[in-house]
């Protein structure tokens, strides 16, 4: 089958957008230059367990500049050639990204179950319209955790629906296993599925979870000709407990807001010593002044 999917995973989109920081401008911005603008729209797709996420990235090429278009309405549709279903509308953000999430049940599919997704920017007076599309068949990945012979085992199954609507296995595919991190997904392993669409992985021990050791585990089929990006998720407390720092640092170090005690004590002792002597000297001066007043009547 020809390569019908022109997409990349959403996180890659996010990062590539970050790689080439684009200046965004609001759609209603006025600009006086007469260079013709070219609208570019890209669509990416991610199939979850019971829903589909579509992301469209809109940018405007003007001369040598590529800028993300903000606030532009994007229309998402799904079709099987005969039925065309409106999935939703979304406005682009500062990076020109619009996202919709739809329930996968009821998506119009052809006899193979393929759905054609279209993202459309109708265009405005200033910027021409643009369209992007991709085809994918919904699929499902499930994750199961078990302990066998004191080994932590992650089992993954991948299924698709046949013509009758029954779930059947997706055999012989590669599933990548990740844990989500602050900025990206950390890959922890790969599973090759057997004929029954099942595969297992001994779960690594040293993965850090949250402060209670909980881990989200993501299993993904990526860039598949037929299924595109498919993802399944589950949670398990097999992680190493994350170290938790309290926001307030009560310690007394050289670099903390509060000084070490010995430092304060030393300083106070020294200051008290010196100023006490000053006070004594001033006291003597005051006494000298007083003595002169006492003496005065004598003169």
């Amino acid at each position: 089958m020809k390569r019908v999917f022109a997409f990349i995973a959403f996180f890659i989109t996010m990062m590539s957008a970050a790689l080439q920081p684009m200046n965004s401008f609001a759609e209603n911005n006025s600009d006086s230059t007469n260079i013709p603008a070219e609208s570019r729209l890209a669509i990416t797709y991610l199939c979850g367990s019971d829903s589909v996420i579509l992301t469209a990235t809109l940018s405007i090429k003007k001369g040598d500049n590529t800028l993300a278009l903000e606030n532009a309405p994007i229309e998402f549709t799904a079709s099987n050639g005969t039925i065309c279903k409106l999935l939703g509308k979304a406005k682009t953000d500062q990076e020109g990204i619009a996202v919709v999430k739809v329930v996968s049940a009821g998506l119009p599919g052809d006899k193979d179950g393929m759905v054609a997704y279209v993202a459309k920017f109708a265009g405005t007076g200033k910027y021409p319209g643009a369209e992007a599309s991709l085809n994918a068949k919904p699929a499902k990945i499930r994750l199961f955790f078990s302990i066998e012979d004191s080994l932590r085992i992650l089992k993954v199954t991948a299924t698709q629906k046949n013509e009758k609507g029954e779930e059947v296995a997706i055999p012989k595919e590669t599933v990548l296993i990740y844990v989500p991190r602050l900025f990206s997904l950390l890959k922890i392993g790969e599973i090759a599925l057997d004929e029954t669409g099942t595969g297992t992985l001994e779960f690594p021990k040293e993965i850090v979870g949250d402060t209670l050791g909980n881990l989200v585990v993501v299993a993904k089929i990526e860039e598949h000709d037929k299924f595109g990006f498919v993802q399944g998720k589950n949670v398990i407390n097999w992680g190493v407990h994350k170290q938790y720092y309290k926001a307030e640092v009560p310690s007394r170090e050289l670099w903390t807001p509060i000084a070490p005690l010995w430092m304060i004590i030393t300083l106070l002792v020294m200051l008290a010593g010196v100023w006490a002597h000053y006070m004594y000297a001033v006291y003597e001066l005051v006494m000298i002044k007083r003595l002169s007043k006492k003496d005065k009547p004598l003169f």
Binding site: K91, P180, R181, F183, K233, V235
Partner: peptide
């Protein structure tokens, strides 16, 4: 420790100026 959420925007709710207009964004795990 926003489990399963790459975005930590939740932390800035209290301080950043809210416009009231919501935008959908994706987390690292979709």
């Amino acid at each position: 420790v926003a489990i399963g959420s790459g975005l930590i925007a939740a932390y800035v709710d209290a301080t950043a100026t809210e416009t009231g207009e919501k935008v959908k964004v994706l987390t690292t795990d979709g």
